[in-house]
């Protein structure tokens, strides 16, 4: 196999200078040949394993890796869907009704999720004030094999949710993520939106799914700008 030194350095996860020096010093089974470097793939990967190094030769068609960070709030919201007039008199029954709407999961998973949400609510309420609650499980779901999503549920009537400011809750964002990292990321973004009073007022108008997503996209643009700076 013949590669350039840059490709070799990349596939061994080593600095370029180190690889070049090791080849010169004869510490690595790679030979210089003209402008490229030749090696036997099997021998090199054996060598790498013996020296606690990782070797993954560059793929012909590099798979595009999905970075969980790239997941935006809007796409998570879109994936979760927006639902209106969720029935229920107290926290538990409302959650139960809300979970039923999540069409991404099968019934078994729904039941499990419901139990988890209840456990989390027993710890402290996820009602973060201003009539908004963000129910989520304490830990990411095990055997989670899905992209993160947020299901938006506007309630039929506000309910007591033991929220921080004791205001009754009229909207729930059920947040489900496969990893803690994406969970925190989405949660902080959502919290940023809710901190804005005008957004809460906007929510109180029970906006349509499209309008909600548009609004959220606006907020995200602001956030992205701040991040990029």
């Amino acid at each position: 196999m013949k590669l350039t030194i840059h490709e070799i350095a990349q596939s061994l996860y080593l600095p370029l200078g180190t690889v070049r020096r090791w080849i010169r010093q004869g510490r690595i089974p790679i030979h210089k040949s003209g402008n490229g470097f030749v090696f036997n793939e099997a021998i090199l990967s054996k060598w790498a394993a013996a020296h606690h190094l990782t070797f993954s030769p560059p793929k012909k068609s590099p798979e595009k890796q999905q970075d969980p960070e790239l997941e935006t709030l809007s796409s998570a919201l879109k994936r979760g869907g927006v639902f209106y007039d969720i029935k229920g008199d107290d926290g538990a029954s409302t959650l139960k009704a809300a979970v039923e709407h999540i069409n991404v999961l099968d019934s078994h998973a729904k039941e499990k999720l419901y139990q988890r949400l209840l456990e989390r609510e027993n710890l402290t309420s996820t009602g973060i004030g201003k009539g908004v609650a963000i129910p989520h499980p304490h830990n990411p779901l095990p055997d989670a094999d899905f992209r993160p999503f947020i299901t938006t549920c506007f309630l039929e009537k506000p309910i007591e949710f033991a929220a921080l400011d004791n205001k009754p809750v009229f909207v729930m964002f059920i947040l489900l993520c496969p990893s803690v990292k994406s969970h925190l990321y989405l949660l902080s973004r959502l919290a940023f939106c809710i901190r804005d009073d005008s957004f809460v007022e906007f929510l109180k108008t029970f906006p349509s799914s499209d309008r909600l997503l548009l609004k959220i996209a606006d907020f995200e643009e602001q956030l992205d700008r701040a991040d990029r700076y």
Binding site: L14, P15, T18, R27, I28, A50, H51, H52, L53
Partner: peptide
């Protein structure tokens, strides 16, 4: 990190 890699590579063979 690099020191260890270097040491491993230099002392084995």
């Amino acid at each position: 990190d690099q020191y260890r890699k270097e040491l491993v590579v230099q002392t084995s063979q």
